[in-house]
């Protein structure tokens, strides 16, 4: 069981590196971030809140973009079909995919975001909050995205539809995330607890429903 998880995770990791998808998400994040100073005209307006918002928006879009190829290639070339016929437990596959997706779209952003925030605003007091709320929120992005990415697999206009349909589900997370990052918020722990609650429920619920969807949609 454990071994299989490791094998599939390793394979997925390797696929991400080999197909050059790995660098795409983090580059997109940085590119998206650069738009904000350009759009604001001059960096002196880029105060605290704007830099935090910019980081959250870029994270959101980078995750949305990365979501599309979560199951796409395995579906198109039939690997998922072989998994199902050969009774490889799909739960393990889904968890491994979620983890590898997070390793490439969540983790680099978490590591780089405090630095970006400091460079943008010259203000580092809220970096810890940003760090914690990103750690809590990016896995939720991945987990929520996973069933929706799975159920759009058969559609012809998958990319556009996926972005459109997933975004409303991300909105509550971004609301709590931004509230949690705000240093003036006295009741800050409440947001973290809420995100933690969503994460712990989501870790069970979303992979399960993804397995259901993959099984019924695969034919």
């Amino acid at each position: 069981m454990n071994n299989l998880f490791y094998i599939i995770l390793k394979k997925d990791f390797k696929d991400n590196l080999l197909s050059n998808k790995a660098w795409f998400t983090i580059s997109f994040f940085l590119l998206c971030l650069i738009i904000f100073p350009l759009a604001f005209g001059s960096s002196q307006y880029l105060e605290l809140n704007v830099s935090i918002s910019a980081i959250w928006i870029s994270t959101l879009f980078a995750n949305l973009i990365a979501l599309d190829h979560m199951y796409k290639e395995d579906y198109n070339d039939g690997t998922l079909l072989y998994y199902i016929v050969n009774k490889v437990p799909l739960v393990i596959v889904v968890y491994a995919k979620c983890l590898s997706h997070w390793l490439f779209s969540g983790l680099p952003i978490i590591l780089i975001a405090p630095l970006c925030s400091y460079v943008f605003s010259g203000y580092s007091e809220n970096n810890l909050n940003l760090f914690i709320s990103l750690i809590l929120a990016t896995p939720i992005f991945t987990l929520i995205g996973s069933p929706i990415a799975a159920l759009m697999l058969g559609s012809s206009l998958r990319g556009a539809a996926l972005t459109f349909i997933t975004l409303p589900f991300y909105l509550p997370i971004i609301i709590f995330g931004v509230m949690g990052t705000n240093i003036n918020n006295s009741n800050i722990n409440a947001e973290f607890y809420l995100l933690l609650a969503i994460l712990s429920i989501g870790m069970i619920f979303f992979p399960m429903i993804t397995v259901k969807i993959l099984k019924s949609i695969i034919n």
Partner: peptide, 13 residues
């Protein structure tokens, strides 16, 4: 064990 299967899709990267 498991059922062996060969289909139209190869499952190759």
């Amino acid at each position: 064990g498991k059922i062996g299967y060969i289909g139209h899709k190869f499952g190759l990267k």
